[in-house]
């Protein structure tokens, strides 16, 4: 089964890099390991995240595609469905173990996450306070989200362990705040 998993991963990675989804660039964290992907996602135009660049770390379990991938934000983001900490956990229905289907492609996962930035889902929140603000005080929410974008999501994207071939000049090893 491991070989099947490798073949599937290689195919998915090839597809994703050949025609990457809108506003995304995809790389492997380590050239020899198909199980860890680094994705740079541009905030969708027209959303409060527009102009920001967000890092996503995708970890594929050895049992992939029978088990769901682990996807988290490497860049801090002010969003009802993403934990407001340096874990960057994401609440996404199709990633939950009961809902995950082995035929689901990472491409659709990435598109779903992009969709989540364009349209947050406050009814299924990870951050109840932010969800409440999103629903009841949209202005304040947008202000906070933009200030996070300005603070964290401008400049080169950094992942926990910087990929060797990406933004080599801009990478620094310290915390989340980017250098301007």
């Amino acid at each position: 089964m491991a070989s099947g998993s490798q073949k599937r991963l290689a195919k998915e990675y090839a597809d994703c890099t050949k025609t990457p989804p809108t506003g995304m660039s995809i790389h492997l964290a380590n050239e020899s390991d198909l199980h860890k992907w680094h994705v740079t996602l541009e905030g969708p135009a027209g959303s409060v995240y527009a102009g920001g660049r967000f890092g996503l770390i995708i970890t594929l379990p050895t049992d992939y595609p029978f088990k769901a991938p682990d996807v988290r934000f490497a860049t801090r983001i002010y969003h009802p469905n993403v934990t407001n900490d340096n874990q960057g956990g994401i609440c996404l229905g199709l990633l939950k173990s009961g809902n995950w289907k082995p035929s689901t492609r990472l491409l659709s996962v990435l598109e779903a996450i992009r969709g989540l930035l364009a349209e947050p889902q406050p009814d299924d929140p990870l951050e109840a306070r932010i969800a409440h603000e999103y629903q009841n005080d949209r202005k304040e929410f947008e202000k906070n989200a933009r200030s996070y974008v300005n603070h964290y999501a401008k400049g080169p994207v950094k992942f926990d362990v910087a990929p060797p071939n990406v933004n080599a000049s801009g990478s620094s090893k310290d915390g989340a705040a980017p250098s301007r």
């Binding site: 089964m1 099947g4 998993s5 073949k7 599937r8 195919k11 595609p65 082995p102 035929s103």
Partner: peptide, 11 residues
């Protein structure tokens, strides 16, 4: 089935 490709493992 001839020409079948498995969509999960891509075999």
């Amino acid at each position: 089935i001839p020409g079948f490709v498995c969509d999960i493992c891509c075999e």
